[in-house]
Amino acid sequence: MKGQYHVIVQNNRVKYEFDIRRNITIIKGDSATGKTTLVSLIETYDRLGSDSGIEVVCTRRCLTVNNSNWEAVLDRSSDSIVFIDEENTIIKSKDFAKKIQGTSNYYVIVTRENLPNLPYSVEEIYGIHNSGRYSDLRKTYNSFYRLYGSPFSGYDRKVQKIIAEDSNAGYEFFKSAACTDINVFSAGGKTKIRRMLVEDPDSTVLIIADGAAFGSEISEIYMFMRSHSGVHLYLPESFEWILLSSGLIDGNRIKEILEKTEDYVDSSQYFSWEQFYTKLLVEETKNTYLQYSKSKLNIVYLDNRQKTAILHVFHIIWEMMGIS
């Protein structure tokens, strides 16, 4: 399934209205904001239809799964939006991650837990906001708001240390780009960043990670940043997204894809946008001087012209990286 979907769910008391645009969306936040009520309305509507008194408006079927029926339901559903409430432990399992990877559905999961088996974006983690009452005074309107939209702090001094989530091409590029007196480390995976932070809490540090799949880590890192003012975060979609955004490769067509990525990513083929950007970059540069490999950086990207174009994509962190 591709694309963005507008969803309206309502009865005579509450109305929810939101958009879903990637294969995995997370809903979390304070108690009593209506998360369970939303999933319950969708479950009842899917079972009883309009006889329930509930209205669900969406061009795709909205349904729910639980601990006992999820495999059977997923086997017979496709191109649907699947909602899962927080009581269901399946969302933490590797079996669940493996199962949904091959489906064409989108998934909306209610949980406060980190789900490192699932590559969800920091941009698709939402709370539910009560927007008040409008034309119908009996009804409460609820919409989604992004919890971690822009955690970049705007710090304008050189940091002592850079932690790159990436261990291959991205790490090589950032190490090459950073001022030589900054220590650049590879975390070797997103879940290892926490320990690196806590082992050296007094350094000023810039974390560079793939926003497209960093969702499981963001809430805890964000909390740590609030109490450790020296920790800063830069979250491009991925290193491959940076290269694609540099204008080095077929500018206009690639720009269009980057602006409306949801219209190009088939959820049954790509578990995250990060995977899509990597495949796109590999295909677009195949048999050219810019031929890209994730495992080792093609040194042509470090040549002056290419490097300058790439650096301009993340100019907002130049000062932290000591780039003048």
Binding site: R13, V14, S31, T37, T140
Partner: peptide
């Protein structure tokens, strides 16, 4: 409940 009207105890939030 100001949002849901008259509700049962079972409709309290999971947090409460």
């Amino acid at each position: 409940s100001p949002f849901l009207g008259s509700i049962s105890v079972k409709e309290l939030s999971g947090g409460v």
